[in-house]
Simulated scan of single mutants.
Amino acid sequence: MSVPYAEVIGDPIAQSKSPAIHNFWLDKLGIAGEYRATRVAPDGLAAYFAKRRGDPDWRGCNITMPHKQTAIPLLDRVEPLASRVGAVNTVHCARDGALVGRNTDVGGFLEPLADHLDEQHLFRMARVIGTGGAARAIVVGLADRGFTLVLAGRDPDKARALLEELAPDGEHHPVSLAAFEGTTDFPFDDRARCCDLVINASPLGMRGQPPLAFDWSHAPPGSIAYDIVTDPLDTAFLRGAERIGFATIDGLAMLIGQAATAFEHFFGAPPPREHDAQLRERLTA
């Protein structure tokens, strides 16, 4: 007997933790459903959506690299936030049969910062490393919440263009990735009632990728370090922050947060977040 299913697509895809997350929630809720991982090559994306449109059991998909932007013209509707970010990471079937693209990366990224963002601050600044698809969602989310952004990339011109496209009204600053590699003796002022973030939104530090060279003298006292990398989870970037006493947020926080919204679209029920600690144990076993 067939069951409703959703899936994550990308190329490569074998490393994805999304099936473990969604199937954990399905099991906890006793929902008859399945979540899969399916490799879709770039030249097979249009054929993939054409085939899934005719499958009555398909509820939608999460999208990872390299399809987050190229999927957009293949969809029937795209929600405003996803249009603004310029990237879709969730597609679901609407009741009228339309394929609707959403971006749950913004909400997933912001979720573990909620308590901090609920506070009143005199000033908010985030140093964001990376100019790829994940960085687009992070720039939009933080700019909308009053952050001044310092966006670092290998190509500062690309960082500048991204800021001008996604956050044109703020006084933001594009810099070279190399700007954070060496030490600085910049005299940070009193950071009371300020919110400072340092975010690795790049693949640097991921297994099989070059390390991220970041000197923590560039981070003001009391900063929060946030790394979206999930393999390994305990990155050198986060270990460096911990050594000097900074609070840290790892990549599973964003991954689980963005999956939660997608799950409800796919299976019609909110995931059982009260089991997050057990889910983390399973994902890191």
Rank of each mutant, 00 (worst) to 15 (best):
A241C: 06
G222K: 07
T261W: 07
A20S: 13
G170M: 10
I224C: 09
F24T: 09
T284G: 03
D115A: 15
D96V: 07
L162P: 02
F147Q: 03
G101T: 08
A41P: 07
L238D: 02
G153E: 01
L122W: 12
P211R: 13
L238Q: 03
C61H: 06
H172D: 14
H172N: 15
K17R: 15
D27Y: 08
F237M: 10
D76F: 00
P56A: 08
V91Y: 07
A178G: 12
H92A: 05
L151T: 00
H275F: 15
A6L: 05
F109L: 07
I249F: 07
R193V: 15
K28Q: 15
A14M: 11
G245K: 11
L212E: 01
H22V: 08
L163P: 02
A6C: 08
N23V: 10
V78D: 00
G146T: 09
G251H: 01
G60A: 09
Y226C: 07
A71T: 14
H275D: 11
L283T: 11
E79D: 13
P80N: 09
A50F: 09
Q209S: 14
A213K: 11
D27G: 13
F267T: 06
R77E: 14
V198P: 01
A159S: 05
T248F: 06
A269V: 15
L117Q: 07
A71G: 07
R243L: 13
R124Q: 09
R273A: 15
V106A: 10
N62M: 02
P272L: 14
A87Q: 09
F123C: 11
N89G: 04
E7I: 06
G182I: 03
P203D: 07
A152P: 02
D157C: 11
G54N: 14
C93V: 15
T261G: 11
L149Q: 02
A20Q: 14
A241I: 06
